[in-house]
């Protein structure tokens, strides 16, 4: 079974995000870069499938030079090889362009299942997996919390508002991974040593033959609106504080 996992390097969830004064982007100083947590679930699921069915796992990432660390992390977890799409023209690329780059790379290699994270926790767009599936001309199941693959088809569980759906799809397909799918393994020390020797192909936009013209552009970035300072609800007894709070929510905030 040939499995492909798309990964993105993103700021750690604990990172403080500072927008540059000119609104052109974020200040990358001091940021700890990690693999997008949802992509980790994709890597883990791919490795589990490989261990069960044989085959190999290819990691594909669009990103600058530092993104190689994230590819190596996935290789250290157990993937076989990597493709690093590195082109200054793709920095801050929109979802369609990123998906085009991934699709061009993935079309050249056999793929029974392609995993993506359900969204990247930096831009929070959640578009790339679906656009990729469309460009590859294969079905998708997004936001998957459970997956079984057998007899040439995949059966996936997905949570929607108020229900869980069980969805069956033919292969090849794109699966976008959600929290709950599995517990990603840590890379072992021998794994990390081995990963250094695993092959990583580097490609740019020209090699992939894709257009880099953005269809969606960030015009300006800004910090979130400040919240006005709040008040501490005082009182002697719990009952008194609770009564005060309910009064405020009812009469001042008018939310209950």
């Amino acid at each position: 079974m040939n499995i492909v996992v798309c990964v993105k390097q993103v700021p750690d969830t604990e990172a403080l995000i500072k927008v540059k004064a000119d609104g052109s982007g974020i200040d990358e100083g001091g940021i700890k870069w990690v693999m997008n947590p949802y992509d980790e679930f994709g890597v883990e699921e791919a490795l589990k499938l490989k261990e069960k069915n044989g085959g190999d796992v290819t990691i594909v990432s669009v990103g600058p030079a530092r993104a190689l660390e994230t590819i190596r992390t996935a290789l250290a977890m157990g993937a076989e090889k990597g493709i690093h799409i590195n082109d200054p023209a793709l920095e801050g690329a929109d979802a369609y362009t990123t998906a085009s780059a991934l699709a061009a790379a993935i079309k050249e290699i056999p793929h029974d299942i392609v995993f993506c994270g359900m969204r990247a926790i930096d831009d929070d767009a959640g578009q790339v997996g679906s656009i990729l599936a469309e460009l590859l001309g294969i079905p998708q199941v997004t936001v998957v919390t459970k997956l079984e693959v057998a007899d040439g088809k995949a059966t996936a569980v997905k949570a929607i508002e108020g229900a869980q759906l069980v969805i069956e799809t033919s292969l090849p397909c794109v699966i976008t991974a959600a929290k709950g799918l599995n517990e990603p393994r840590y890379a072992s020390l021998p794994g990390i040593m081995k990963a250094k020797k695993k092959p990583v192909d580097v490609k740019d936009a020209a090699a992939l033959g894709i257009s880099v013209a953005a269809k969606a552009k960030i015009v300006k970035m800004m910090p979130p609106p400040e919240r006005a300072p709040g008040k501490i609800v005082g009182g002697e007894e719990a009952a008194e504080k609770a009564a005060q709070l309910v009064k405020l929510l009812r009469e001042e905030a008018k939310v209950i």
Partner: peptide, 9 residues
Amino acid sequence: KAFAEVEVD
């Protein structure tokens, strides 16, 4: 943690 204004072409 941040907001963006986006234009679609």
